[in-house]
Design a protein around this nucleic acid. Structure first.
Lengths: 145, 145
DNA sequence: ATACCTGCAAATGTTTTGCGACTAA
DNA sequence: TTAGTCGCAAAACATTTGCAGGTAT
């Protein structure tokens, strides 16, 4: 287990908050980093259980919350009732194209839209901190079916 | 209780599906229409309970689902884990500015952004059916605090 | 007459919390 | 040493479902 940039960030955050860098938190961070794009807490728990069956779900939930506060992860809610977590650090912001047929999602990014969002907010005297944009529809693989 | 355009739409939808227009469904529709912008199922249940204590939560949930299918309501998920329902009929599509301090939300609409969303989707050979855009930040009332 | 609906309570599925034992700093 | 953590099981929470009786068409 080599020390990642993300682990530095987490360590820094924990220190600032007088929290501790425990073995479990390292393992959960690593598992999270090893996953592409999105996971739910339950999914991550299943992955971790494989090598570390002693870690409980509650700890996974608690740690994911910390990763969000530390700026390493981000909560995303799609149409289902489960919370997904996505990478945030070293990963530019993106929006989602979500296929309503197969459930597959594509990450996209459009600077022009981001700029217009900013202007829209300014017209409303609103200071944007973050945003979420999701386009639901039919992806290119499902369009013929 | 006078017959609204929305009730016509619901009646039409129910007939098409061989479902029935019951007293409860009318009451729930009216309560939903009487509310501005958004409600959760639980909130709507509380409102209805006032005059119609015999109606159960389950029926409110079931009916809101039907209103969505009939095109009168729309499910919206914010950051909390509760499902909000908003009016859809006679109400143009809009996006949300959500204040992270006071929780207040403003409805907004920007045709330029919608157009760019369409283009973005086309570049990805994706056919958009609907979308969701939310800007999170500080509203003008909270900005000084 | 006969689907369909209802309220109730129980079940579900996700996420949180209380607790006594444990551990990083 | 001591605040913060852990895993566990129980609790909390929103939402769904099974059922026996009721109702719109």
């Amino acid at each position: 287990m080599n020390i990642s940039k993300e682990e530095d960030i987490l360590t820094e955050y924990l220190k600032k908050k007088d929290l501790k860098l425990t073995g479990q938190r390292k393992i959960i961070l690593d598992a999270f980093l090893g996953v592409e794009c999105h996971v739910t807490a339950e999914e991550l728990y299943e992955i971790i259980k494989h090598n570390n069956p002693e870690i409980g779900v509650a700890t996974v939930y608690r740690t994911l919350k910390i990763l969000c506060e530390a700026g390493l992860a981000n909560e995303v809610k799609f149409s289902d009732k489960v919370t997904h977590y996505e990478h945030l650090f070293d990963h530019q912001h993106h929006d989602h194209l979500i296929c309503v047929k197969c459930g597959q999602y594509t990450e996209v990014c459009d600077p022009e839209i981001e700029e217009l969002q900013q202007k829209l907010a300014e017209r409303n005297k609103f200071k944007v901190l973050r945003h979420r944009m999701e386009l639901y529809g039919i992806c290119k693989n499902c369009i013929g079916k």
